[in-house]
Nucleic acid binder design. Structure first.
Lengths: 172, 172
DNA sequence: TTCTTAATTCAGTACATTCTAAATGTATCA
DNA sequence: TGATACATTTAGAATGTACTGAATTAAGAA
């Protein structure tokens, strides 16, 4: 594999990371592990990506929390080695699930708490908007909730959806 | 409508904004317009939310770009007044569409460009991962692309999806 | 136990984003 | 035309986020 292409890949995956809300260092580490056949040590990762060992350590901890990388030990070696979770899709769902839980759910609760009392004393127009917001949030939450319960289901939802939009397209 | 509840709603919608990638001021302005029956002037908005007129101006410009608010003129009045797009769902799709176009699409192009040359000289294991990444990105892009072409379709995809996951849940 | 090597934590720094307020631009009115 | 009333732009301040590197902790080896 060409050195230069590998690094271009790593950088672009870093940018993609920030698109869906994980920071660039995390995504770059992840990309590096994806193109590496063998487990890599923290030291190796930090050196290759020119980031501090401290930062690498924190990112890897976080990536383990997301369920995206795994730590492997080699007998007779004190260093920790890291490998990527082999299934990329599974990984994607893990991230989606985590982000929903950490960011969406808590805010959803608060928004909902305020939405219902607002209905009182609101004009019809405003009430309609609030109702729509409530429905939108409920639908999104419902879909995410049910889709992400497990990876198998998530996958089947995605593939189904993919077929559905293709069919839709032919019709119109 | 209770003053206090309104402001709690505005703040929590602000937080929700940052979850899906629009900044807090923008989301707060948006929330304020949602609970307001009548169009509001820039000055009124800035005063109510305790933000500078400059900031309000920039946020409103951006919200107009997203297709989320609209400017209305009142005859015999020099001020600009703003109203929210009445259909909350439509608005949500507009945001999704814009974010995809601005952020996801450009990165997707770059990642794809690097993915294919990487295949050469990669081990089977790595090649499998790269293939999976490609498939995942393609599927996501495909779904988003097709779903978001127009609001009517987007809505039907969502409602269909919602029914699908409900059925799935009963079965298992 | 102490020595050694590696991982982790964290205070401070660098960088990025968001916001303010003053300056500038624009349209309407007298 | 100049004066007025508003909107917009922008330089720099404030705030927030990510990162570094030194200090600390942990754990295997002697």
């Amino acid at each position: 594999m060409d050195e230069k292409t590998v690094s271009k890949f790593i950088e672009s995956w870093g940018t993609m990371g920030s698109v869906w809300g994980i920071n660039a260092s995390m995504a770059r580490i992840h990309a590096l592990l994806i193109v590496s056949e063998r487990p890599l040590s923290l030291d190796h990762i930090a050196k290759t990506l020119r980031i501090s060992r401290g930062n690498a350590s924190m990112c890897l901890k976080e990536l383990r929390n997301w369920g995206v990388v795994r730590l492997v030990k080699e007998p007779g070696d004190r260093q920790d080695y890291y490998v990527t979770e082999p299934d990329v899709w599974k990984m994607f769902f893990a991230i989606a699930r985590e982000r929903k839980r950490r960011e969406f759910d808590p805010v959803l609760t608060v928004v909902r708490e305020t939405l219902s009392p607002l209905h009182k004393g609101a004009s019809d127009i405003v009430r309609l908007r609030l109702k729509q917001m409530e429905d939108l949030l409920t639908t999104l939450n419902f879909i995410a909730e049910r889709s992400l319960t497990n990876d198998k289901r998530a996958r089947s939802v995605l593939s189904f959806l993919s077929r559905f939009v293709r069919k839709k397209n032919l019709k119109e």
